[in-house]
Measured scan of single mutants.
Amino acid sequence: MKGKVVSYLAAKKYGFIQGDDGESYFLHFSELLDKKDEGKLVKGSMVHFDPTPTPKGLAAKAISLPLE
């Protein structure tokens, strides 16, 4: 699924993505496929991810940034 980063707290390594389906997904650095892309996780960045339901809500897994 595609989505847009709505927040990312680099110090805490987490944030949120708004998916194309309108839902909010929890984003964690550990799910970023290329850790070098962390600096690109800023508000408004477009990402691809696997939407995954968890006991705490919806989460983004296997997060990647589109090729530039």
Rank of each mutant, 00 (worst) to 15 (best):
Y14H: 05
D50K: 14
K12W: 09
F49N: 00
K43E: 08
L41V: 05
S30N: 12
K61V: 09
K12I: 06
S24A: 08
I17D: 00
L67Y: 13
S64V: 11
V5C: 03
S24D: 06
F16M: 06
F26R: 03
L65K: 04
L33K: 11
K2C: 15
G22D: 05
K12G: 06
Y25K: 00
Y25S: 00
D37H: 08
D21C: 04
T54S: 08
S45W: 05
S64D: 05
F26P: 00
P55Q: 09
K36S: 13
Q18S: 09
E68D: 13
L65Y: 05
K4N: 07
Q18M: 14
V6C: 12
K35I: 08
A59D: 04
G22K: 05
G44S: 04
H28R: 06
G44P: 02
S24T: 15
D37K: 07
T52C: 13
D20M: 09
D21H: 04
F49G: 00
A10R: 13
K4D: 03
L9Q: 12
K40Y: 09
K4S: 08
G57W: 04
S30R: 10
H28Q: 07
D34R: 07
F16V: 06
L33T: 09
D50Q: 15
D37L: 09
K4L: 11
K43G: 06
K13R: 11
S64W: 15
D20N: 09
L67W: 11
K61T: 11
T54K: 05
Q18V: 12
F16A: 04
L67E: 13
D21L: 03
D21N: 08
L33N: 06
F29K: 06
A62F: 10
A62V: 06
G15K: 01
G15P: 00
K36Y: 08
K40M: 09
P51Y: 07
T52S: 13
A60K: 01
E38T: 05
P55L: 11
G19T: 04
E68W: 11
K4E: 08
E68H: 12
L27M: 11
K56E: 07
I17T: 01
K56W: 12
L58W: 11
L41A: 02
T54Y: 06
L27W: 04
L58K: 10
L32T: 01
Y8A: 03
V6S: 10
K13Y: 05
P55C: 09
V42E: 08
I17Q: 00
A11H: 12
V42Y: 11
D37S: 09
E68A: 12
K13V: 02
P53S: 14
A11I: 10
K4I: 14
E38D: 04
V47I: 07
K43Q: 10
H48W: 14
K35F: 08
S45Y: 07
G15W: 04
K56T: 08
F26V: 05
F49H: 01
K13F: 05
L33M: 10
G39T: 12
A62Q: 11
Q18P: 02
F26A: 03
V42Q: 11
S64Y: 14
Y8G: 02
E38Y: 05
S45N: 10
L33A: 07
K35E: 09
K43R: 11
F26Y: 09
D34W: 06
L33S: 06
K12T: 12
G39S: 14
D34S: 08
K40S: 07
K4T: 13
K35S: 09
F29C: 07
A59P: 01
S64K: 11
F49A: 00
K40Q: 07
F26M: 04
D21Y: 03
D21A: 04
L32I: 06
A10N: 09
K56Q: 11
L65C: 07
F29Y: 15
K13Q: 08
L27I: 06
G39W: 14
K4R: 14
F26T: 03
D50F: 15
H48R: 12
F49P: 00
V42S: 09
A59M: 14
G15C: 03
K61N: 06
L27K: 00
G39I: 14
L67K: 14
V5A: 01
V42I: 12
S24K: 13
P66L: 15
G15R: 00
D37C: 09
I63Q: 01
Y14T: 05
H28E: 06
T54N: 07
K4W: 15
A59I: 15
A10S: 12
Y14A: 05
K2G: 10
V6D: 06
G39D: 13
Y25M: 01
K2H: 14
T52I: 13
D20T: 09
V6Q: 10
K61M: 10
L58H: 07
D21Q: 03
K2V: 11
Y25D: 01
V5P: 01
V6R: 14
L58R: 10
V5T: 02
E23F: 14
V6A: 09
D34M: 06
D34T: 06
L41P: 01
D21I: 01
K43M: 08
L67T: 13
A10E: 10
F29H: 08
G19Q: 00
A10C: 12
A60T: 02
D50V: 15
V47S: 01
D50E: 15
L41E: 01
V5S: 01
M46F: 11
K4P: 02
Y14S: 06
D37V: 08
Y8S: 03
G22P: 00
H48N: 10
T52R: 10
H28I: 05
T52H: 14
E23M: 13
L67A: 13
A11D: 13
V42M: 10
F16E: 05
P66A: 15
D34G: 04
T52V: 14
K61E: 04
D34L: 06
Y8L: 08
F29T: 06
K4V: 14
Q18T: 10
A59K: 14
P53R: 14
L65Q: 04
P55E: 10
E38P: 03
H48D: 07
P51E: 02
